[in-house]
């Protein structure tokens, strides 16, 4: 059979478990999660605080190894890899967006976005690095802020830089742990607009959020409780951020006229 499109799921989880051992106490943060995430999906992970969302994300992000079950990232068994190989995998196939932005301070937007290419193998030539970082910053709408330091930018702009950094190495998957957690409502919706736009262009996104309003922009919603998935549904009434913003703008106009 000839399939021009890669149809293996980006992520295949089989009975994935993560147990933390702190002294005498065992904390089963994730217990038996089985999931497939297809290319082009836009998935939200929801759940109460302490339900294991971040732990699952960190494991998906190859920042940590699971203690049980199987994890295939793009067909590669992650459990067998050492720190060095995990680092290569993160660099090539994954992009991270954090709640607290996690940009390098006193480092320009451009250089922050260049950072992943710095660790790429084979080495990305300097010129190409600049070029790609600039292009990506333009894609997230910050083409005019290349030389700015994070401290000179708003929260929403900083998160856009972080997204550009996550995208610059053309990853298979972007992982975002509460990316709107530190942003106001309007900026959050704008950011979701960016994510939707990126997803429309084919990028796979997994996002943790505990706000239903935010999850409503995703295509698929997974809910966790006590380290397990308790529901996994397609979001039929998906909201469009672009439309929301337009509505918000109109409301604002009216308020001003009144």
């Amino acid at each position: 059979m000839n399939t021009p499109v890669n149809t293996t799921p980006v992520i295949q989880l089989r009975d994935l478990a993560k147990t933390y051992q702190t002294g005498e106490v065992e904390v089963k943060a994730v217990r038996g999660v089985t999931l497939d995430i297809q290319r082009g999906d836009f998935m939200a992970i929801m759940g109460a605080s302490g339900s294991g969302k971040s732990t699952l994300m960190n494991t998906l992000g190859c920042l940590d190894q699971p203690t049980g079950g199987n994890y295939l990232l793009d067909g590669i068994a992650v459990a067998a890899l050492n720190r060095k190989e995990l680092a290569k995998l993160r660099n090539k196939k994954l992009g991270f967006v954090f709640q607290s932005f996690n940009l390098l301070a006193r480092t320009s937007a451009l250089e922050n976005v260049e950072l992943p290419m710095f660790y790429s193998q084979p080495l990305v030539p300097l010129r190409e690095r600049h070029h790609r970082a600039m292009q990506t910053l333009e894609k997230v709408g910050l083409g005019n802020r290349l030389g700015h330091y994070p401290s000179q930018l708003s929260g929403g702009q900083q998160q856009r830089i972080a997204i550009a950094r996550a995208l610059v190495n053309k990853p298979e998957l972007v992982l975002a742990d509460e990316p709107t957690g530190n942003l106001d409502t309007r900026t959050s919706i704008e950011l979701m607009g960016l994510f939707q736009e990126l997803n429309d262009s084919g990028i796979t996104i997994v996002m943790v959020t505990h706000e239903l309003d935010i999850a409503a922009y995703c295509k698929r919603i997974v809910v966790m409780r006590d380290g397990q998935v308790i529901s996994d549904t397609r979001n039929e009434k998906r909201r469009s951020a672009v439309e929301e913003i337009a509505t918000l703008d109109q409301a604002e106009q009216k308020a001003k006229l009144a």
Partner: peptide
């Protein structure tokens, strides 16, 4: 520490 964490997250190897 945070800078190191960021670098590792984006793919810096222990050797880097």
């Amino acid at each position: 520490t945070r800078e190191i964490g960021i670098r590792i997250a984006v793919g810096a190897q222990p050797g880097d």
